[in-house]
Amino acid sequence: MKHKAHTVLETRGLSMHFGGVHAVDRVDFSLRENELRCLIGPNGAGKSTFFKCLTGQLNPTAGDVVIRDIHVTGREPHEVAGLGVGIKTQVPNVFDGLTAEENIWTAARRWHKAPRAQTLTSQIIERLRLGDIRSTLVGNMAHGQRQWVELGMVIVAEPWLVLLDEPTAGMTHEETARTSELIKEINQSATIIVVEHDMQFVRSISQHVTLFHEGAIMMEGTMDEISSDPRAREIYLGSQA
């Protein structure tokens, strides 16, 4: 199947400079359909900046982002999301003053009429086991629960491309395991990019990993290939690998 799949996301010479800091420097990246790709790298490697250039939250200094043959460089985030891209940012980014149900409904209603949005919302709440807290204000929830609500908002829109920035940050072991199951499930129907710190988590979900270092892609390969590379070990994995 893999050799047939075509490229759905591509960056060419993507650069993001903040003054003299080259947070992302001439990155050529491509992603094939139905891939589940993890972006890893030490703090400050440029993963999150790269991520924000993909989502339109940052306007890159140079280079191009192409999603399904559409140039999205410099477009607004809502235009990128409007292509059917589901985005979860690093910090839980939710509507604190609304309930879990209202949060997810707002995401669903963007794409569907009211009755269908309601049905989808209920399905997602059940799937994510949020039933007990569906009427709780998200602002009053624990960190992990807020992450789940946000994941719910992403998947209820049935995106074909999912961009997740540290989806397991602040989650317990059990929650992390469930998230990894969920991501594999989403991967059945969608292409996914995950920016992640947690190596165990990356190992549990990923087929293909991209290692960032100093704003550039240092290497790509399977987790095993990367962890056996001496340079990669040195800059990042250290004793963890």
Binding site: T55, E76, P77, H78, I87, N93, M153
Partner: peptide
């Protein structure tokens, strides 16, 4: 009002 970034990432202008 609650979170403009999130609303934008849900594809609302």
């Amino acid at each position: 009002r609650e979170n403009e970034d999130r609303a934008e990432l849900l594809a609302y202008d």
